[in-house]
């Protein structure tokens, strides 16, 4: 197989497969969350303070008012990072063609210039976030290998995609860079449902997790009886 065959394979069946793994994996999370909320909470969902919960969740879409002392730089960088990783993979013209070919979805594209700027912002944001994790003692104390690895894994398709599209910054051949781009993105697709990247969908459930204060009536007594018998005492 020539390198072009590999690229075609990565663009075709491998893309479809890994994308499917991601979608099904995320769908599994959604189904588990929705069904357990409905079956677990049932009628108690009605008495939940929905207005408050939804208003709070929406306030995080553009989290300006949540930027407090000590969180401003992280918040701005993180926001730019998310704008980039949502818009560029979905709306870049080359990706639009793939969506159309592989999935039959027709989306409007963003201009190449804007995509380039967003990509560079994203790369810079990833490097800053990595810097926080490596050099910030607080973040370092909480970070495990996967936290660093995922940032690098996200960096790879962005950096290789940009290099593939700009011959002047590409140290390798277009083919090598494109293959790196495709394969790293596809590894990321597979990782999404099994890592914290699943917050693509779980974010919405976490944001409404105030619902879990709607505790299950009778559960406390059952726990006490199971552990201490029917005559359980405080």
């Amino acid at each position: 197989m020539s390198v072009h065959d590999w690229i075609d394979f990565a663009k075709g069946p491998l893309f479809a497969f890994t994308f499917l793994v991601m979608v099904l994996g995320l769908l599994r999370h959604v189904i588990i969350q929705v069904s357990s909320l409905i079956t677990g909470k049932g009628r108690r969902l009605r008495s939940a303070p929905w207005r408050r919960i939804i208003a709070d969740a929406l306030s995080w879409v553009i989290p300006i008012r949540h930027m407090t002392r000590g969180t401003v730089i992280f918040s701005v960088v993180s926001f730019l990072f998310h704008i980039g990783i949502i818009l560029v993979p979905v709306l870049l013209i080359d990706h639009i063609v793939m969506w159309e070919e592989q999935l039959g979805i027709d989306l409007p594209a963003i201009g190449r210039g804007l995509a380039d700027v967003l990509t560079l912002f994203t790369i810079a944001a990833i490097l800053v976030l990595l810097g926080f994790r490596i050099f910030g003692s607080r973040q370092r104390s909480m970070s495990s290998r996967i936290d660093y690895l995922l940032l690098v894994m996200i960096l790879l398709p962005f950096a290789s995609g940009y290099a593939a599209g700009h011959a002047n910054v590409n140290p390798l051949s277009w083919e090598a860079m494109m293959l790196t781009h495709l394969l790293s993105a596809e590894v990321l697709f597979v990782l999404v449902p099994f890592t914290k990247l699943a917050h693509i969908v779980l974010f919405f459930f976490d944001r409404i997790s105030g619902l879990h204060w709607q505790l299950r009536p009778g559960a406390g007594d059952k726990v006490a009886h199971a552990l201490f018998g029917e005559e359980a005492k405080v």
């Binding site: 999370h29 588990i32 969350q33 357990s36 909320l37 677990g40 909470k41 407090t68 002392r69 000590g70 969180t71 992280f74 918040s75 993180s78 910030g136 607080r138 973040q139 909480m142 970070s143 495990s144 936290d147 099994f194 890592t195 914290k196 699943a198 917050h199 779980l202 974010f203 459930f205 976490d206 997790s209 879990h212 505790l215 299950r216 559960a219 406390g220 059952k222 726990v223 199971a226 552990l227």
Partner: peptide, 27 residues
Amino acid sequence: AVLEFSDYRPLLDSYCTSSAKCNRCAV
């Protein structure tokens, strides 16, 4: 016992997977 009789599992499942450990909460 708490997990069996209460309904914390979906909450814990979600948090376990998605917690980003960004440390924004510290300050």
